[in-house]
Amino acid sequence: MAPSRRRARSSEPAADLLTSLPPPLLDSILTRLGLRDAVRTSALSRAWRRRWVDLPCVLLRYPGNISNFSIHSLDKHSVRRVDDWLIALCNRGVRSIDLQAPGLAIHSSVFLCTSLVCLELHLCSIPPLPVEFTGFPVLKQLKLMVVKFPPNGEIQLEAIINASPLLDTLTLSYVDTRSEALPGWVIGGGQSPEPNYRFQ
């Protein structure tokens, strides 16, 4: 009986020690590797399978442009990566950002992505415009849904729209400008003969 018990124990899968490491430690290890070696860690265990994808260094080390960037769900580990991703996108020629970040205050670098053609922000807090903001020269579509601006955000929203000369589609749904009294808005963005502006 004793030998069979020993055999049963030995056939049990060994505990995956890697999964017991805290996520910040896993990330710290990965950031010390080259990109190729970081990708290879996917074979180590489930905890490592796609962890390299979340690292900001992936965007920073990628040599080419990134046309589209989209996030529709964030786990607790990815939430702290969003600022790094947005900063990394600034110089990557990104043309489309679609970000759904419930309750998250996003980084102001999103307003420095001057190659944007489409910007969609959902369920997040909008930061104040950075002093370096010069506008969105090629932005055609702006969609803001269930977002919160800083106090007197209507001024900032007007500044964004007026600094987007090619804007032809504007969707505002449940936008909180944190202002008690809204002045009369003058929306001057867009050179399209028939701009598509929707408010809710």
Rank of each mutant, 00 (worst) to 15 (best):
V146F: 02
A38M: 10
D98C: 02
D16I: 06
R80W: 00
S11A: 06
V138F: 11
W52L: 10
N65E: 11
R51L: 13
L182F: 06
V79N: 04
I66W: 04
P165F: 06
P130H: 04
V58D: 00
I87T: 11
S67N: 12
K148G: 01
F111D: 00
P13Y: 03
S192R: 02
G188A: 11
K140I: 02
P183H: 14
A14H: 09
Y62M: 01
S179Q: 12
I97V: 15
Y174A: 12
D176L: 08
G103Q: 10
V186C: 06
A181N: 11
L170D: 13
R92T: 04
L116T: 06
R7H: 08
E132V: 03
P165Y: 07
G153E: 07
G93N: 09
I29K: 14
G184E: 13
A159P: 15
A43E: 08
W185C: 06
L172E: 05
V175S: 08
T31D: 13
V53W: 01
R61Q: 14
C118I: 12
S10F: 00
T134E: 09
L89D: 06
K148D: 00
R9F: 02
Q191I: 04
D37K: 11
G93W: 11
E132M: 10
S78R: 14
K143A: 08
P13E: 05
L172K: 01
P183I: 09
R46M: 05
L99D: 07
G135T: 09
L104W: 12
T177S: 06
D37Q: 14
L172V: 07
